[in-house]
Simulated assay, not measured.
Amino acid sequence: MRTIVVWAGLLLGTIAVQSVLLPLIFSNGTKPDILLIIVVASGLLAGRERGVGIGFFAGVMQDFASGNIFGLNTLSKMATGYIAGLAERKVFKESMVLPVLAITMATFFNSVSMQALLLLLGYKVELIPMLQYQLLPSLAYNILFCIPIHRLIYRITFGNRSQF
């Protein structure tokens, strides 16, 4: 029960900060996707079931908060959490390189999957401006925040057994 309360509090607090505070700090609408970092870290550290579950709830909350096409963030975050969770048994969880590599790949995958879903829904997608003005700055911010968030998720997942 405690675990559910901790995860719910973390996700609710993160969506509040990501929706209200980060747009005031970061310019041009490009900001870190902290929910994506949490989804990737939970998948890497706890497996695909946790990655999909956290991805679902994070995506639903982000869909509600953004006002965009409902389900877009949910599907992309669930898929990203599942793929991150596939690597759970194959990685050294205490590595400092792991979060950086994982969030780099996950940011690209999440963005490509969202653009593919938009194309499937019949929306026009311009890849070069999206890459230049949205994906690359967001990737830089995600890399900046990934190590501290990965450490936080490690402590939530494994408790005080941390050597991190």
Score class of each variant (00 low, 15 high):
residue 45 L to Q: 01
residue 156 I to C: 06
residue 79 A to K: 10
residue 21 L to H: 04
residue 143 I to A: 10
residue 32 P to G: 10
residue 38 I to Q: 09
residue 133 Y to S: 07
residue 159 G to P: 08
residue 138 S to V: 14
residue 44 L to C: 02
residue 86 L to N: 09
residue 53 G to F: 00
residue 126 E to M: 14
residue 18 Q to A: 02
residue 112 V to I: 15
residue 41 A to I: 06
residue 87 A to V: 07
residue 65 A to L: 04
residue 25 I to D: 00
residue 108 F to G: 05
residue 161 R to W: 14
residue 112 V to C: 02
residue 131 L to W: 15
residue 94 E to C: 05
residue 77 K to W: 06
residue 162 S to I: 14
residue 157 T to G: 01
residue 161 R to T: 14
residue 32 P to A: 06
residue 97 V to S: 03
residue 81 G to W: 03
residue 73 N to S: 09
residue 124 K to N: 13
residue 50 R to E: 05
residue 3 T to D: 07
residue 128 I to Y: 02
residue 69 I to P: 08
residue 103 I to E: 05
residue 117 L to S: 02
residue 38 I to W: 07
residue 81 G to D: 01
residue 29 G to W: 02
residue 78 M to R: 11
residue 110 N to T: 07
residue 89 R to E: 09
residue 31 K to E: 00
residue 1 M to W: 05
residue 127 L to A: 13
residue 70 F to E: 08
residue 41 A to H: 09
residue 46 A to V: 03
residue 81 G to R: 02
residue 72 L to K: 08
residue 68 N to G: 13
residue 163 Q to W: 11
residue 31 K to W: 12
residue 4 I to V: 05
residue 103 I to T: 06
residue 109 F to S: 10
residue 43 G to F: 11
residue 107 T to W: 09
residue 145 F to L: 03
residue 105 M to K: 08
residue 107 T to K: 00
residue 92 F to P: 08
residue 77 K to C: 08
residue 18 Q to P: 13
residue 70 F to P: 10
residue 73 N to C: 07
residue 105 M to C: 15
residue 6 V to R: 13
residue 65 A to C: 10
residue 85 G to Q: 05
residue 7 W to Q: 05
residue 27 S to I: 05
residue 49 E to I: 03
residue 112 V to T: 14
residue 163 Q to C: 06
residue 61 M to E: 06
residue 158 F to G: 01
residue 38 I to E: 10
residue 156 I to W: 13
residue 40 V to R: 01
residue 86 L to Q: 03
residue 68 N to H: 11
residue 120 L to M: 14
residue 108 F to Q: 00
residue 17 V to P: 05
residue 11 L to W: 10
residue 118 L to D: 04
residue 1 M to D: 06
